[in-house]
Design a protein around this nucleic acid. Structure first.
Ligand SMILES: [Mn+2]
Ligand SMILES: [Mn+2]
Ligand SMILES: [Zn+2]
Ligand SMILES: [Zn+2]
Lengths: 136, 136
DNA sequence: TTCGTTGTTTATAATTATTCTAAAGAAGAT
DNA sequence: ATCTTCTTTAGAATAATTATAAACAACGAA
């Protein structure tokens, strides 16, 4: 996903109007080779840096939540003062470098298949996530 | 762990003075048959309910952090507005019922062994936690 | 293209979990 | 008892996130 046209289509397909702000956010989030792990604040700053245009913090929050809801972003469960998101929405797991406060992808094959043997009546499994904390 | 004397010893062993407040908190946290998953606010309210004595919120925070540092409590990585803690400090994993906002223990045998095949130079693994989100 | 509608952005305020501060109090040692 | 050190506490400060509501932009129909 690389061109502005594609972002516009992507937004249209989700019934999100393709505004200048959302397209800029798409550029920062999705115009990359590698997966991107970020906090709202990371993103907020990168938008200014990479596009030269400022988007209000409220819009960054709104858009990230909209993309999350549409399945374009994944929320990574860690305890931090800030919430982390991930552009890689496939099933995968993470290292979290506690000192650097950085997430690193783990491929499924790096972890192996996880079979949950217990079940709770009336509930079904929504996601299975492994978090591996790293220290020096 | 059941008697007040034991809590006093436990606190002394950790070089934490056995104050009335800390002992009350121990009663609520550790005088139970089953593991206990809680937020600071849960605990704050339970102390009043179960002991009849009020402990200030700041002390609840201080004590939970002290116990966490001493290894008497485990912090559970989930994305929530509040931080969850666990009196079960053994290696184990969790279900998180997203609707009820409740944690449920998973025994290691319910998940199976997890072998991380990837390593990061200069870093070592501190913990491996599986979080299974549940929906209706 | 214009117009009315609906969705979006924004600055700013509100909320809320958590941490900090500093003074009063309690525990421990001598 | 006295001194020191640790602890508790109310309240203030911090900081991430969410809510508000007015200005603005995209859309679709005329
Ligand atoms: Mn979200
Ligand atoms: Mn802690
Ligand atoms: Zn990832
Ligand atoms: Zn547990």
């Amino acid at each position: 996903m690389t061109s502005k046209q594609e972002f516009i289509e992507k937004l249209r397909n989700s019934r999100l109007r393709p505004t200048k702000q959302r397209i800029n956010i798409c550029e920062v989030l999705f115009n990359r080779y590698k997966t991107f792990h970020f906090t709202i604040n990371d993103l907020f700053n990168l938008i200014k840096d990479k596009t030269g245009e400022k988007v209000s913090l409220a819009t960054v929050y709104n858009t990230v939540h909209a993309f999350h809801k549409k399945g374009y972003l994944k929320e990574i469960p860690i305890n931090s003062n800030q919430t982390y998101f991930d552009t890689n929405v496939t099933d995968h797991h993470h290292f979290f470098d506690v000192k650097e406060e950085k997430l690193i992808d783990l491929k499924n094959e790096d972890v192996g298949p996880i079979e949950i043997q217990k079940s709770i009546p009336g509930k079904k499994i929504k996601s299975v996530e492994v978090l591996v904390k790293l220290e020096d």
